[in-house]
Amino acid sequence: MPLVLWCLVVLLLIPYVLAALGGYYKLRHLGGLDLHHPRAQDAGLTGIGNRIRASQSNAWEALIFFIGCLLVASLRGAPLDALSLPALLFTATRLAHPLLYVGDLPPLRSAMVLVGLISGLYLALWAG
């Protein structure tokens, strides 16, 4: 399987890992999981738990962006092997992003978003 597709698999898993961590913080800090109103329960999270939840939302948004960029590159006829480097860079930024979010390091987190945005646009428009 081409490396760009492995990157996609990793990016698909990130939001679910963050959801599991968010669930842990709900159990720990809120005493349980409200399966009827989980989004409303999210409002009760503070600190790290809240940052994990926000990071998960951002991971979904980044995944949609990456899939769109990958689709554009594919429709352009770019060979998948030519997309490896920008896909790896994008994936690295998305792995670093939740760590920087949870660590409450907004300037570095924003830098990761910018590098990811540039690598995604490169993947879509110029790679291959």
Results as ranks from 00 to 15, higher is better:
2 P>Y: 04
3 L>A: 13
3 L>E: 11
6 W>R: 09
7 C>Y: 06
9 V>G: 01
9 V>K: 00
10 V>R: 05
10 V>N: 01
11 L>G: 01
11 L>R: 14
12 L>I: 07
12 L>E: 12
12 L>S: 13
13 L>V: 13
15 P>D: 01
17 V>S: 02
18 L>Q: 09
19 A>F: 00
19 A>L: 09
19 A>R: 01
19 A>C: 03
20 A>M: 12
20 A>G: 14
23 G>D: 14
23 G>P: 07
24 Y>H: 13
25 Y>I: 00
26 K>I: 05
26 K>G: 07
28 R>K: 14
28 R>H: 12
30 L>K: 06
33 L>Q: 12
33 L>R: 12
34 D>M: 04
34 D>S: 03
35 L>I: 08
35 L>S: 08
36 H>T: 10
36 H>I: 04
37 H>S: 12
38 P>M: 10
38 P>S: 09
39 R>S: 15
40 A>Q: 15
41 Q>D: 09
42 D>T: 10
42 D>A: 15
43 A>K: 15
44 G>A: 15
45 L>Y: 05
45 L>Q: 06
46 T>E: 14
47 G>Q: 08
48 I>P: 05
48 I>E: 14
50 N>W: 10
51 R>V: 06
53 R>Q: 15
54 A>N: 13
54 A>G: 10
54 A>I: 10
55 S>F: 07
56 Q>R: 15
56 Q>E: 15
56 Q>F: 04
61 E>D: 13
61 E>Y: 13
62 A>L: 12
62 A>P: 02
62 A>W: 02
64 I>V: 15
65 F>E: 11
65 F>K: 04
66 F>A: 11
66 F>P: 00
67 I>G: 03
68 G>Y: 04
70 L>M: 13
70 L>R: 00
72 V>A: 15
72 V>L: 14
72 V>S: 00
73 A>T: 03
74 S>E: 12
74 S>G: 13
75 L>P: 04
76 R>I: 05
76 R>T: 08
80 L>R: 09
80 L>M: 12
81 D>F: 03
81 D>K: 02
82 A>F: 01
83 L>Y: 11
84 S>T: 14
84 S>R: 02
85 L>G: 03
85 L>Q: 04
87 A>Y: 02
90 F>Q: 02
91 T>V: 09
91 T>S: 11
92 A>N: 01
93 T>I: 03
93 T>D: 00
94 R>Q: 14
96 A>P: 04
97 H>L: 13
98 P>R: 06
98 P>D: 07
99 L>K: 02
99 L>Q: 04
101 Y>I: 00
101 Y>L: 04
102 V>N: 02
102 V>G: 03
103 G>H: 03
104 D>E: 06
106 P>E: 08
107 P>M: 05
107 P>A: 02
108 L>T: 03
109 R>T: 06
110 S>R: 09
112 M>N: 08
112 M>Y: 02
112 M>A: 15
112 M>G: 07
115 V>G: 04
115 V>I: 15
115 V>C: 07
115 V>W: 05
116 G>M: 03
117 L>Y: 10
117 L>Q: 01
117 L>S: 11
119 S>L: 01
121 L>C: 06
121 L>R: 01
122 Y>P: 01
122 Y>T: 11
122 Y>Q: 06
125 L>W: 06
125 L>K: 00
126 W>T: 05
126 W>K: 05
127 A>G: 03
127 A>C: 02
128 G>Q: 00
